[in-house]
Amino acid sequence: MNRLLFIGFCLVVAFAIGVGLWVVGGPEYARMVDQDRQRVFDLDVLADQIACVGQPKRVLPDNLEELEPCFGRPDANRNDPVTNMPFRYTVLGPDAFELCAELAIDPKAARRTLPYKNDLILRSGNTVCLVRRKAVAD
């Protein structure tokens, strides 16, 4: 009886470890997940700086080099934290813009570990984007 219980427990623990490792992936995968999370966090902070709520008279910059600090908000990182390439910024209209980043992991697989996953728009390849509207003065 106890021998069976003991073997059963060993099998359950082996199953938990095996499936757990399969779900979370290896160290390299974990590093890429963290890098992608950082990219999406950076995109969000940068989008907040561009939208700069509370300054409706401010116009959208044509490119990220022209982006000015927004009072009360931290100066955002404009480049990818790993590759150091600038995030892709596109002006969609007088009050709308899009910010995109290239992820290391396929976004469809990585969505479960990404912040703001409901706001992210999947583009081709590993690209994800945030679209924001800016409040403008009448």
């Binding site: 623990v13 938990a16 470890i17 499936v19 757990g20 490792l21 779900v23 979370v24 974990a30 997940v33 999370r37 479960r112 570990t113 990404l114 912040p115």
Partner: peptide
């Protein structure tokens, strides 16, 4: 793992599995 079968899993769930597996190992 059961939660992940039924719900849209999150980063927190992955972290909990990662820590739990480390303890079990």
């Amino acid at each position: 793992l059961v939660d992940m079968l039924f719900e849209d899993d999150s980063y927190v769930a992955i972290e909990r599995i990662r820590f739990g597996v480390s303890v079990l190992i």
